[in-house]
Amino acid sequence: MEFLTATGLSSAAGLNAYIPMLALGLLDRFTNFVNLPPAWSWLSNDWMLWILGVLLVVEVVADKIPVVDSINDVLQTVVRPAAGGVVFASGVGSETVTVSDPGTFFASDQWIPVVIGVVIALAVHLFKMGTRPVLNTATVGTAAPVVSAVEDGAAVGLAAAAIFLPILVLVLLAALAFGFYWLFTKIRRRSEPETGIL
């Protein structure tokens, strides 16, 4: 279950870096649903919650504007995988410490959850980043706010499922993959007669 929780959180980070981080921080701070390991308690710090909240608002707005969304995706290529590593490691209860001695950190198994989370979030991010320009081009930018809202909803759903009902993560990931594939195929078919692309 911890692996499903961590996978759901890191997948959500691939769509929006700040939603799962903010969810973990708020739930740790104000409820008993999440108890972050001591190494990750900084996520529930007041300043961190405010910073994540502001960054989330900026991300949500930027991701809904054609062209700006693609620039934002390029900038997020580092942020989303890093957030995926953080939430995966905190989701599996990793006792990762602050890295003051990289040799000790890599000699132990503490880096493994972070790397797994980075890879999962990066895969989701690259898929998102690759499909958005195609969707924007095919719909002359009208798809940007709709697709972005769906992605934000999926990130919220994945984060909530990961925390409260981890087994649902598998269903949501399958539905998300199918939804992206279906939308991508539909828009591509619609644009074929106009562009002549096979």
Rank of each mutant, 00 (worst) to 15 (best):
V156N: 03
L75P: 04
D152V: 12
V118G: 01
L75Q: 06
V156T: 05
V140A: 15
S94R: 06
W111A: 14
T77C: 13
P145V: 07
P145W: 12
S148I: 03
T98M: 14
A143I: 02
V99G: 05
L135I: 02
A89R: 11
V147K: 01
R132T: 11
D109C: 00
A162S: 10
N72F: 12
P133C: 04
A144E: 08
V118W: 14
V140T: 13
P102A: 09
T96Q: 14
A89T: 04
K128W: 12
A154Y: 01
W111D: 02
A162I: 09
E95P: 00
D152L: 12
G157H: 10
G153M: 07
F105A: 04
A107H: 12
G153F: 08
N136F: 02
H125L: 11
S108Y: 03
G103W: 07
G103E: 12
G117F: 08
G85L: 12
G93P: 07
V124W: 02
P113W: 09
Q76N: 15
H125T: 08
T137S: 13
V134W: 04
S100N: 13
G157E: 06
D109M: 13
G153C: 07
L135N: 04
T139P: 06
H125G: 06
S100Q: 07
V134I: 15
I120T: 03
P113N: 06
V97E: 15
A89W: 05
L158H: 03
G117A: 08
G91C: 09
N72K: 11
L122I: 05
D152Q: 12
V97R: 14
T131N: 11
L135T: 09
A107K: 11
A155C: 08
P102L: 12
T131F: 04
T139M: 04
T104E: 15
I71G: 06
T131P: 00
A143T: 09
G91H: 09
A138Q: 11
M129P: 00
S100G: 15
I112S: 02
T104P: 00
